[in-house]
């Protein structure tokens, strides 16, 4: 596992979301709370795993995972669903301790329970109200990115 730590502002956020509206709204909400973090968007479970553990065209192993602060994971996704991605993330040594926040429209108790059982750090129901949406992003970024910050040298990359 890469032990280099990045400052919280430099950590990326991986948003796994298939709906373009929700993608745009999430990015906008992030911008509105004035976060400098880059939001990386992938559209399905397969792409998410590809992004985390895949080989680049050059064949070199990426260190993308180490640059991530949190993963925002929708549950209803094409191909691999959110719970399957979560399972894979928890099994991989590099992302074993990565904060994963489920980010979904459903508040089915069974689904919520399953997500926590598989190791989700939090479960957020996407609000209808955009203002609430922005507040949620604020809390999320502050709390989880700060929590994930490891003391040490800030790398400029």
């Amino acid at each position: 596992m890469t032990s280099r730590a990045l400052c919280m502002d430099k950590l990326n956020i991986l948003l796994v979301e298939d709906n373009p509206d929700d993608q745009l709204l999430a990015i906008r909400a992030f911008e509105q709370v004035d976060k400098k973090n880059k939001v990386v968007v992938v559209e399905d479970g397969e792409q998410a795993l590809d992004y985390l553990y895949g080989q680049e065209a050059t064949g070199a192993q990426t260190d993308r995972a180490s640059r991530l602060g949190i993963i925002l994971l929708d549950i209803k996704l094409p191909k691999l669903n959110g719970l399957e991605v979560l399972k894979a993330v928890r099994q991989h040594p590099e992302t074993q301790w990565m904060p994963v926040i489920m980010f979904t429209s459903s508040d089915e108790p069974a689904e919520m329970l399953e997500a926590y059982r598989l190791g989700a750090n939090s479960y957020i129901k996407k609000p209808l109200d955009y203002k609430q949406f922005v507040n949620q992003m604020d809390v999320l970024a502050k709390y989880w990115l700060k929590l994930n910050k490891v003391p040490g040298e800030c790398l400029n990359s």
Binding site: L25, R28, S105, E108, K126, L128, D129, Y130
Partner: peptide
């Protein structure tokens, strides 16, 4: 009802979000 919860809510969120935008 799962679909209702999941899929009907999404467009509403977009309507509200972009109106706000």
């Amino acid at each position: 009802s799962y679909s209702v919860s999941h899929d009907l809510r999404q467009p509403l969120r977009a309507i509200d979000g972009f109106s706000q935008a």
